[in-house]
């Protein structure tokens, strides 16, 4: 079944995720929609960005003509030098992640299961994929927030009862923010928390592969 209603755009997803970042926290943003999140962090809620490339306090990207090949984020984008940056080796970069020093990470996903399993590193049809820091973030970050479209380009649900794509981590996802809903995986199953404006809980269920737990307190998506 498809629901022919307007979905939220990537910027709105990023705005919604930004509300989840803890003030003063250390945050790692993945590639894609997660990268957009930093645009919506309120000025009075300072967040320190961590990158696996070996830098804390990442700021904006370098302007054209001012790129420095020795100053990159984990996506290989060139960063602007900003006051308070710290550089470190990959061992320290991952001690921060694996040692529980990163408060939240925002990642994209191919699939998230009802109990919070995450699949985001390989599309089965490709047969090979990139893990990068994703498995470490899934295992080590205090909160793993997934920001993604609710359905793939073919309309297949990405929120599923069980992942059939290769896993990045089991039971690791804390919150899923999509273009139609905000969902919380729990050991008992996927709880629907918020729906996009104009959407009903039943409509969200109809485009979701997991059985949703729908309480009386489902709210409209707040940005």
């Amino acid at each position: 079944m498809t629901v022919d209603k307007e979905r939220l755009d990537r910027m709105i997803i990023a705005m919604r995720v930004a509300r989840e970042l803890p003030p003063g926290g250390y945050v790692n943003l993945g590639i894609g929609i997660p990268t957009l999140v930093s645009m919506f962090v309120a000025d009075d809620s300072v967040v320190f960005y961590h990158s696996e490339s070996g830098v804390l306090n990442c700021g904006p990207l370098a302007e054209d003509g001012n790129e420095d090949i020795d100053l990159i984020n984990a996506g290989g984008q060139f960063l602007q030098p900003v006051p308070g940056m710290a550089y470190f080796s990959s061992v320290d970069a991952f001690a921060m992640i694996r040692g529980g020093h990163v408060d939240a990470t925002v990642l994209g996903a191919h699939q998230v299961s009802a109990t919070g399993d995450l699949a985001n590193w390989m599309l089965p049809e490709r047969g090979v994929g990139n893990i990068g820091g994703a498995m470490d973030l899934a295992a080590g970050a205090d909160r793993v927030i997934v920001a993604m479209e609710h359905n793939d380009r073919q309309g297949n649900p990405k929120v599923v009862q069980e992942c059939d794509f290769p896993l990045t981590g089991k039971g690791c996802v804390s919150l899923v923010v999509t273009d139609v809903a905000v969902l919380e995986p729990t050991p008992a199953g996927m709880v629907l928390r918020e729906v996009a404006p104009g959407w009903t809980a039943d409509e969200v269920q109809s485009v979701t592969g997991a059985r949703l737990i729908i309480g009386d307190d489902v709210k409209e998506y707040e940005v």
Binding site: E52, S90, V91, A93, I97, D136, A138, G140, K170
Partner: peptide, 26 residues
């Protein structure tokens, strides 16, 4: 996984044969 790669290198350089990590479990 990237952090496991970093830690495997660190261990190799420091004479640590092996280590346990939750990264990649399951």
């Amino acid at each position: 996984p990237q952090g496991t790669l970093a830690e495997r290198l660190r261990a190799g350089g420091a004479g640590v044969l092996a280590f346990y990590t939750p990264t990649g479990a399951g």
